[in-house]
Simulated scan of single mutants.
Amino acid sequence: MPAFSLDPSQNDWCTELRALAADRFRPLAEKGEPGRVNRPLVAALGETGLLGRLFSAPAEPLERDGTGTGGALGLCLMRESLAYACTEAETALALQGLGAHPVHAYGTAAQRERWLSEAAAGRAIAAFALSEPGAGSDAAALSLAADRDGPDGWRLSGEKCWISNAPEADFYTVFARTTRGAGSRGVTAFLVPADREGLTGTALDMLSPHPIGALAFDGVRVGPEDVIGEVDRGFRVAMTTLNRFRPSVGAFAVGMASAALDASIAHTARRDAFGGTLADLQSVAHRVAEMATRTEAARLMVYAAASAYDHEGPRAPGIARRAAMAKLLATETAQYVVDAAVQLHGARALQRGHLLEHLYREVRAPRVYEGASEVQRGIIAKELYA
């Protein structure tokens, strides 16, 4: 299927998702507490089957389902559609996917049986614990130590920081250093339940409305049954997960940009000013045209990156570059579009509770998490000069 074209079933599905987000998820989101996991909202995502879609397809490569709404492209369509009407629902879905995808793609049968069904149903909250106080953008520099404890176990000691869903998650995909001095080759992924002795967490007061926290590991015991994938091969688990989700971060951004664009079109078309409407002013109309053009360009790049992932697999040449380009362009575009929308609306857009006030707070974080814009440019440049 051409990357620039969605078929009727996909367009219909996106329309259904927008309506579902507005009618069912938005009321639940409004009852939630900022900075806390909204468990009723996550449960609703599970009850509607949306979380199950994250884990129903083969993990590598991800294939489309019969309606053309599976795989990486399906995830992008979900995130874009949900973000348009309810960013909280979008983020809750994405965090479940990010935290549990390593178990889906690399976990043992026992790990999948214990945790995936619970995550898909929205009963267990997942989290992806990679970043540390001294290792954010440079993920290979992480220092959470996994020291040998007997012939078949380890003790985790150190900290994780900026972890979405922490400290309220029920289980964590944790990346720790099992071989010192080995860079990315000495990292192992572990599945760590939240009630494991020695694991504590604190919430961080962040600009982003969704929960973010820090984790402390004080000799947390993990065994071979907790390893996700292979020992010392956890960096691959982390990077393939991020490559899987980076285009869909772009889709989240496109959804927010689309909402801001539509709000701007409606506002400028009806707002009286200077003997006509705002839309009659060439400067305003041209600004809205620029917003629309950038949003559509970002959308097409996101779809292209996701389609390539689905058809070629996560380790095909150029997949990382495409994912980085999609995230970079879409998140930078969304920042521009939302900021322009605030400017066109004026002071009303800064009032607490206004759609654009909400989007203005939401749109900043995606330029940082899952690899800041500067990191994406580095990935792109590295592949161009390889």
Rank of each mutant, 00 (worst) to 15 (best):
G35M: 07
V103N: 08
V284D: 05
G49Y: 01
V192E: 00
R155Q: 12
W162D: 07
A203P: 05
G198R: 01
T293Q: 13
L359M: 06
G150M: 02
R322F: 01
L207P: 02
A135L: 11
G150E: 04
D7C: 10
V231Y: 11
G97N: 01
F274E: 12
A176G: 00
D280S: 08
P167L: 05
L75V: 03
V375N: 03
E312F: 14
W154D: 11
E296W: 08
R352P: 11
L278M: 12
V37W: 05
L142E: 11
G223I: 05
A110G: 00
E113S: 10
L142K: 09
L359C: 00
R155P: 01
A214W: 05
R64I: 09
D23M: 09
A251K: 04
G150C: 02
L191T: 08
F252P: 03
G353K: 06
F171Y: 14
K31E: 15
G378P: 01
S264W: 10
S157H: 12
A141S: 13
A145E: 15
D170T: 06
A194R: 12
W13G: 00
R177V: 08
R123P: 04
V222I: 02
L191Y: 10
I380T: 06
Y369Q: 08
R221K: 12
N243F: 14
A253W: 05
M291Q: 11
F171S: 06
Q96T: 07
A85S: 14
G318S: 03
Q10L: 04
A146E: 00
A253G: 04
A189N: 11
A119H: 05
G223W: 09
G150Q: 02
Y369I: 15
L144G: 00
E290G: 14
A83F: 07
